[in-house]
């Protein structure tokens, strides 16, 4: 027997949820599918496949005010921003949920990022397991699975006419009213098979090939746009500026990317990663080596967004494959 909810009951429950909290779910915006605040629960997209942008922006917004300067009464005070709104993210896939768990590592490590922690505390994740796999996905090679419930508060799995419900955390339990779920004799569909990449031992191989001419060749075609970083559920770099806005001064942070020209430019104008090869290598070295060394997991969850979105087909699956090959040669 499984806990079960019909599709109609699910939608009316989400409707109720949206009355007291921000309900965020995948919706269609022209040709794109994006996580957005839902106006009508009928707009929620249940289709398989990943959204064009990951839901990281609900924890690490594209732009966010960190604090503002209050200069009233002849005093100068720094007023920190606060997250007030409770949010429920519905329809998050296991890879993206894992992505948030990966973001937790740098952002919740003490001293924790105050705003990130508040977003995290005020958000409940309702996951949707994948019953089919996209051709660009490789989650099982990156430490998660299409039905991994370990990083959400509630996990749903689509079955005929409704969903099997797994209540994973207390936070998830608190969101469900008594008597909403029924028991049903239904078993979950088999998890889809996901293409694999040879990620075993990749950190060590990245060490070995650090100085390989491979990176310059790969970077030949890189445009050094920020698409890969911005669609990525785990990239977490930002830039910070003080801006005057509506008569007050605000400190704002916005997404930034290691691929951006000038990302590493320092006072005096020197840029230690001005060349294309080292700049592109940084993306993969951070994902497959530095983050692994610091936090013990790869900084990639295999969602396949960068694979799909790169305008020149720089494909992390191919890079991993190539690097494994290069490493073998250098040992010989």
């Amino acid at each position: 027997m499984s806990d079960y909810i019909s599709r109609a009951d699910l939608l009316s429950w989400l409707e109720k949820v949206s009355q007291s909290r921000d309900l965020v779910a995948p919706v269609k915006i022209e040709d794109l599918t994006l996580f957005q605040k839902v106006e009508r629960v009928e707009d929620i997209v249940f289709d398989p496949g990943n959204t064009d942008l990951s839901p990281k922006e609900f924890f690490f917004p594209k732009s966010e005010v960190l604090f503002y300067v209050d200069r009233s009464d002849g005093r100068v005070e720094l007023v920190p921003a606060e997250v007030e709104q409770e949010t429920v993210i519905f329809g998050i896939r296991p890879c993206d949920a894992k992505g948030i768990a990966v973001l937790d590592l740098p952002y919740l490590e003490e001293p924790a990022d105050a705003l990130y922690r508040q977003h995290r505390e005020k958000t409940t994740l309702v996951g949707l397991s994948c019953v089919s796999a996209c051709p660009e996905c490789f989650c099982t090679s990156m430490g998660t699975t299409p039905d991994d419930a370990s990083n959400v508060d509630i996990m749903l799995t689509e079955v005929e006419e409704g969903f099997i419900v797994q209540v994973v955390t207390e936070k998830g339990k608190a969101l469900l009213p008594e008597g909403l779920l029924s028991s049903k004799e239904v078993s979950p569909p088999a998890a889809p098979s996901v293409a694999s990449v040879p990620s075993e031992g990749i950190a060590e191989k990245m060490h070995q090939v650090f100085d390989s001419p491979y990176w310059d060749r790969l970077a030949d075609r890189c445009l050094h746009c920020n698409v890969c970083s911005y669609v990525c559920p785990t990239c977490y770099c930002f830039d910070v500026r003080d801006l005057r806005s509506g008569g007050r001064v605000e400190r704002v942070r916005s997404w930034e990317s290691c691929q951006s020209p000038g990302f590493t430019k320092i006072a005096g104008g020197y840029d230690p990663r001005a060349a294309k090869g080292p700049r592109l290598r940084q993306r993969f070295a951070h994902k497959l080596l530095y983050f692994v060394e610091k936090f013990g997991v790869t900084h990639c969850v295999g969602c396949g967004r960068c694979v799909r979105s790169c305008p020149v087909n720089i494909d992390i699956r191919e890079v991993i494959q190539d690097v494994q090959g290069l490493g073998v040669k250098s040992e010989a």
Binding site: I29, L223, C225, N226, V227, Y230, W255, S257, G262
Partner: peptide, 19 residues
């Protein structure tokens, strides 16, 4: 919808300002 990824600029043959 713009996320300021600058892909438009980076792909454009006419966009080559050093800064």
């Amino acid at each position: 919808r713009c996320i300021r990824c600058y892909a438009c600029r980076q792909a454009c043959p006419g966009c080559y300002c050093s800064e």
